[in-house]
Computed example of a mutant assay.
Amino acid sequence: MLPERNHSVVITGASRGIGRRIALAFAEHTDYALLLIARTKDDLEETRRLCNSKGNNKIEVLPCDTSNAEKVRSTRLPEDFPTSKIIINNAGSFLLKKLQETSTVEFSQQIQANLMSAVNTTNRFLDDLKQQPHSYIINICSVSALEGRKDSGAYSASKHALLGYTRSLRKELMDTEVAVTALNLGQTESSSWDGSSMDRSLLIDPDDVARLILSITSLSPRTVVEEMIVKPKHGRVPPM
């Protein structure tokens, strides 16, 4: 197997929150090159700066709206950038709104952000992953993919769709060297909760999520984590 430095990790939603913590973990503990994708260039550059303080990884930032299939398909990387070996589909959006109050446009935006971002990114890099001896696709799903939510129905529906896509992709790629994982997260500390009255110290630590992903991508070629559920230790944090 080639050394890590000859491969890269694609991380969407890498400009802040969970995505940034995942990037920092790979920078600190691996030699993988990092392809950091999000919509906001300034925030991506901040993630790059923080990663540079942790390691000497080759880092490329790519400002891109991953929900836009054409923009993702047309992305070009430097010729010397290492081939992708791991995709972490983390980009997404949370809408706190009852279904009866959700417009068609808002519902579509949730599907685009939480499903199609993963589909588009996977389609862009899947051929590269298939050429690797042992590669990974990790989709950041949600416990909302496992049950309905009365206060965020469109979000829940979009995450149900992402989980279904992930399960189907796992079946489709089972005879290849690409391992596919759905990571179903409960409430995790991130900027999504800005302005909320909840006790954020009770939420899942995003560094724990990053460590889990490092562990999942360190397994032997004989093993795959198909699905994992991660929740706050003391249960769902009110008032959500």
Rank of each mutant, 00 (worst) to 15 (best):
Q112I: 14
R211Q: 08
C141V: 14
E227S: 03
N6L: 14
S67Y: 03
F125V: 13
L129G: 00
L126S: 04
A157M: 11
N6E: 15
K130Q: 11
K71M: 15
V9Q: 00
F125S: 12
M1I: 06
F94H: 09
F125P: 07
E227G: 03
D42M: 13
N6G: 10
H29V: 05
A27W: 06
S15R: 05
K171G: 03
L162W: 12
A145W: 00
T121S: 13
A25T: 00
L44P: 01
L36D: 01
A179E: 14
H29G: 02
Q112N: 15
M240R: 10
C141W: 10
E172M: 14
E177W: 06
R73T: 01
F107Y: 08
T223F: 07
D208H: 13
I213G: 05
E28W: 04
S15W: 04
K54L: 09
L146I: 07
K41P: 02
C51Q: 10
P63M: 06
M116P: 09
G164S: 11
Q131D: 15
V230T: 07
D43I: 07
D42P: 03
E227A: 04
I37W: 04
Q131W: 09
R124Q: 05
I140D: 04
L212W: 02
S156Y: 07
R20N: 05
T12N: 00
L212F: 04
W193Y: 07
V105G: 09
E46F: 14
P82Y: 02
A91V: 08
L214V: 09
L203E: 05
N184L: 11
A182L: 05
V72D: 04
E46Q: 15
A38G: 02
N68F: 10
E147D: 10
I216S: 14
L115I: 07
S74Q: 12
W193A: 03
S158N: 05
K85C: 05
F94S: 06
K71Y: 14
E177L: 08
G186E: 02
D205W: 09
Q100I: 12
T223Y: 11
P63H: 07
Q109I: 09
T188Y: 02
M116V: 06
T188A: 08
T83Y: 09
T47Q: 00
S152G: 15
H234Y: 14
E60L: 15
P78A: 01
E189H: 12
F81Q: 00
L36G: 01
L34W: 00
L62T: 06
R48G: 11
I88M: 05
P63T: 08
S67A: 10
T12W: 00
G55P: 01
R124T: 01
S67Q: 05
M228L: 13
G13A: 03
L126Y: 01
K233W: 04
K171R: 09
V143A: 05
V237I: 08
L2E: 12
L183I: 02
L50A: 10
Q132S: 08
R149D: 09
G235P: 08
N139D: 15
N56P: 10
T12R: 00
L77T: 04
S190T: 11
T223P: 08
E79V: 12
S84T: 10
N139E: 06
F94C: 07
Q112E: 09
M174D: 12
M228C: 11
Q110E: 13
E189D: 11
S93Q: 11
R170P: 11
I140T: 09
S168N: 15
Q110G: 06
V10H: 04
E4M: 12
E172H: 13
L115W: 08
S152M: 13
E101H: 09
K58V: 10
G186Y: 01
